[in-house]
């Protein structure tokens, strides 16, 4: 799978009504606000390999009835790219989310987190329960839900004598052939046939940051299995977990566990990979809307 080089941003279906930056410890984080209507949706950033354009299929739909707030995670998009690893602690992302809620005068929001958005969302839901009306997690990178997929268990820091498969998930390879890594990774991420455009999009967004940034982010502190479970069990808001049955990045066992630990609903998507919100946007959008309506 060869993706094309990044092009100028394509025309959006809807442009933000408001945009701005919050700044914490000298790091600027870019946010956007769309539409109006309760409840507000806060679309969280995931791993800094991509940015808030990942929500491009959700924003125009949600913003017809709801206020939608999203922001670029530090390390990509129009946000700063700090070099210190501590800047990428999961809690920092959660605090960015809180700062964005404050800056946009959002009392409460339905929080939507994709992949690494899960630990961030869980921290936010625990520390600011009154700000989180509900949480939706897609393909959650939930360490409380068992071991990573076996084929992904490869030394990340060591020089390997192969570049094959998941050996590409390796800091040395990233520095050697970042583009090769992006092509590989997003090819794994979209398991569904006919996903060329979604892969191209993600590779393009990946190219907006650097392997050095992702390496720094790699060292950010993340909740371990027990801490993650604690966060999940203590989350008080209604939860919906959506997980692709063919997810090759984070096993669906993680989504199942997160639903169980939070007492949330689980929607399993048979035949889907890691990013159903991009690949099956219609179904996912309707799920989001139904979830919000049930909170009303």
């Amino acid at each position: 799978m060869i993706a094309v080089a990044p092009a100028p941003e394509q025309t959006r279906a809807r442009y933000p009504d408001e945009e701005g930056y919050i700044e914490r410890d000298g790091i600027r984080v870019f946010y956007e606000v769309y539409g109006s209507g309760e409840p507000t949706f806060l679309l969280l950033p995931t791993w800094s390999i991509i940015h808030s354009r990942q929500w491009k299929a959700q924003i125009p739909f949600l913003a017809r009835e709801h206020r939608v707030v999203t922001f670029d995670g530090r390390g990509n998009g129009r946000s700063d790219r700090p070099t210190a690893s501590e800047a990428y602690d999961e809690r920092e992302f959660a605090l960015d989310a809180l700062a964005v809620l404050d800056a946009t005068a959002t009392d409460r929001a339905v929080v939507v987190g994709y992949s690494l958005g899960a630990p961030r969302g869980l921290i936010l839901a625990n520390e600011q329960p009154e700000r989180v009306a509900g949480a939706v997690f897609i393909g959650p990178a939930y360490s409380g839900g068992g071991e990573p997929l076996p084929e992904r268990v490869m030394p990340w820091e060591d020089e390997l004598d192969t570049d094959e498969g998941w050996a590409k998930y390796n800091r040395h390879y990233w520095l050697r052939d970042y583009r090769g890594f992006l092509d590989f990774f997003f090819g794994k991420l979209f398991r569904e046939p006919h996903s060329t455009k979604q892969i191209e999009d993600c590779v393009g967004w990946g190219l907006e940051t650097t392997p050095e940034t992702l390496i720094a982010a790699h060292y950010g502190a993340k909740p371990g299995p027990e801490e993650a479970q604690e966060l999940a069990r203590r989350a008080r808001c209604p939860v919906l977990v959506v997980h692709g049955g063919d997810d090759a990045i984070a096993s669906h066992t993680r989504g199942r566990a997160l639903a169980e630990h939070t007492g949330g609903d689980l929607v399993l998507l048979a035949g889907s990979g890691h990013a159903p919100h991009a690949r099956d946007p219609i179904f996912f959008n309707l799920l989001l809307r139904d979830f919000a309506r049930r909170l009303a």
């Binding site: 569904e192 199942r256 639903a259 929607v267 399993l268 998507l269 035949g271 159903p276 179904f283």
Partner: peptide
């Protein structure tokens, strides 16, 4: 809470 499955079209 419940578990539902949706199978993508193809």
């Amino acid at each position: 809470p419940k578990v539902k499955t949706w199978t993508r079209a193809l």
